[in-house]
Nucleic acid binder design. Structure first.
Lengths: 348, 348
DNA sequence: CTGAAAGCGCTTACAG
DNA sequence: CTGAAAGCGCTTACAG
């Protein structure tokens, strides 16, 4: 691919050197804040740089210095529901280090992953973030061996790889929700969990179960449901079952905001008050949560923070830090809103 | 930022040359598919490359060849509702050219935009896509002059810049919806438009008005509403107004899927049948549309295609093509579902 | 058809 | 403290 970019002659380090009357080595030292340059020479160089509007060529620097100050995100789903927030976290962390972020989409296809990895390696990436945009799950190692390039997994993990995986603390998130419901005096808590095939499902059930048991209000098997999908429709149907049971719950915890939204509708339909009769908590804190009636209390997935941690961990490794296999669980946060604590809400 | 990547000595073009018994110039020619290499020499070099597992260093190539085969997306909102699909389109187009995509997020802040632009220029990007993740709107030129680097705008435009802007054909999308409703025999069409401050709002109203007028069934002022937001809540409230009017509509066109969803709820609540009594059409084709009851007929925003067109146009310019100021409107597509054509749907 | 030489724009020991 | 020289790994005229 040829380039059309060469109208004005670019200013190079040689131009700066000759105008300032020094060597390029000296200019380079000033550029890189080396101590071994005299104060007045340094100032003269600095002035010349400013006057000529000189900007170092990052490609040349990269070739010589053997690092590009660039990391790549390789995702399996660029349109995954959580992809953006994760990427933003990574971009935040990278920006703070003045590192750029390259984007590659494998569509979850190992062949594409391999191709992208090859290209990324050719481009001398300093490090890689291999991420899923969908859900926590185990995967095999990179489709191409990466002997000399640090990498981390984000929102997925590989049991065999000697690198960190950044994951949400789903179990801890459920603990927060459970504790909150206990705190507001609920004891008959209904749980609408997600599909059993997701890891988050087991983790969240575990956190809820343990917390309620510890509080002496164990989760009743009759009040647990597993949805076939994470959709509001399923939430509606299963909440209806719970509400129609002989001993209906005084709170419903949905394992996703969508499930909880369906529960909201079912409760409204029965003319029950939220939160007085039934409190509702969701999970994820997607933007729809705050727009519900009443606004939905929910457990926020720490996506931004996960992205940041991934970026930081990677950059530490790029700078020489040791990596090892570890699962880093980033804590969730409870967002308390009117569906559990509030002015009370009657059906419209 | 120092690098930790130097375990195994990398294979260079010199290694290939010496093993194959030729000069590096010859290897380079083979690499770049130049015609002036003898067939048996070419084969020998190819074999050596394969045997040594040689991969050209893209950074060195970039320095010498003066292009990096990399473009950047500079977005004002990495979590915008349409950002992903647009980016995926760009990534698709770039991948086809074997070009990589760098990602930068300005948060809509001119200072950050300038900083990113500077960094991107330092990194010798071949071209830039400056995009909005939110909505079509005019903006000023790049926060930094880009005299030697091609760029295009995506989902936003700048009146003064001599480059293309890629936009959705909102007007044409409304024409499709209107024509469809006419085709299924509707004549009293209600329109719930979005907030007046959005350009899409005027464009869609225009397309609808023109199409209905041309068909001899002009849009009745009494059946037009402007929502204060794009939310389902507003759609619900305004659809209720329309349905309670003396001459209620036999179809409702919502300027977003969310608005249309609210209309669905209002129609259900009145015990009316969809589409028999009232047909409903949305706009955007977000994933929720297909999950409605009944599934929502809607006008799909051509986000992927817009991203692809942006990528292609940019890459053409990078390869020397002329750029000029133009607004490229990518056609929307109608997705016909049961809310306008179907088995009929009674309230649940 | 092939290769020696120069050079892309920097940084890095090293000598003084 | 400063600079001459070498070199990062390629590609590009150019000579033969």
């Amino acid at each position: 691919m040829a380039s059309a970019n060469s109208t004005a002659q670019r200013v190079t380090i040689r131009d700066v050197a000759s105008v300032a009357g020094v060597s390029t080595a000296t200019v380079s030292k000033v550029l890189n804040d080396r101590p071994d340059v005299g104060p007045e020479v340094r100032q003269r160089v600095l002035d010349t740089i400013a006057r000529l509007g000189y900007r170092p060529n990052a490609v040349a620097r990269g070739l010589r210095a053997r690092h590009t100050d660039t990391i790549a995100i390789l995702t399996d789903d660029l349109e995954g529901i959580f992809t953006n927030a994760l990427m933003r976290g990574v971009e935040d962390a990278a920006s703070a280090y003045d590192v750029s972020v390259l984007l590659a989409n494998s569509y979850g296809d190992p062949d594409r992953e391999r191709k992208h990895l090859r290209r990324l390696l050719d481009r001398q990436m300093d490090g890689l973030i291999i991420m899923s945009g969908n859900r926590v799950r185990p995967r095999s190692g990179p489709a191409l061996p990466l002997p000399a390039t640090p990498y981390v997994f984000l929102y997925e993990y590989a049991a065999t790889e000697p690198v960190p995986s950044i994951l949400p603390d789903d179990r801890g998130g459920a603990v927060l929700a459970a504790q909150h419901l206990l705190d507001i005096g609920r004891r008959r808590i209904g749980f609408i969990n997600g599909p059993a095939s997701w890891e988050a499902t087991a983790d969240r059930l575990d956190g809820l179960t343990a917390t309620l048991a510890a509080a002496g209000a164990p989760l009743r098997p009759a009040l647990i449901r597993h949805a076939a999908s994470w959709s509001p429709q399923d939430g509606y149907a299963l909440a209806t079952e719970l509400l129609d049971a002989p001993e209906p719950p005084d709170a419903i915890f949905g394992a996703s905001d969508d499930l909880a939204t369906g529960a909201l509708a079912a409760i409204h339909e029965r003319g029950l008050r939220i939160p007085e009769d039934v409190a509702v908590v969701g999970f994820d804190d997607r933007s729809l949560a705050v727009h519900q009636r009443p606004p939905l209390t929910t457990v926020a997935l720490p996506l931004l923070e996960m992205g940041r941690v991934a970026g930081q961990r990677l950059l530490e490794a790029v700078n020489g830090g040791q990596q090892r296999h570890e699962l880093i669980r980033v804590p969730c946060e409870l967002r308390v809103r009117a569906s559990t604590v509030g002015a009370g809400h009657t059906p419209r």
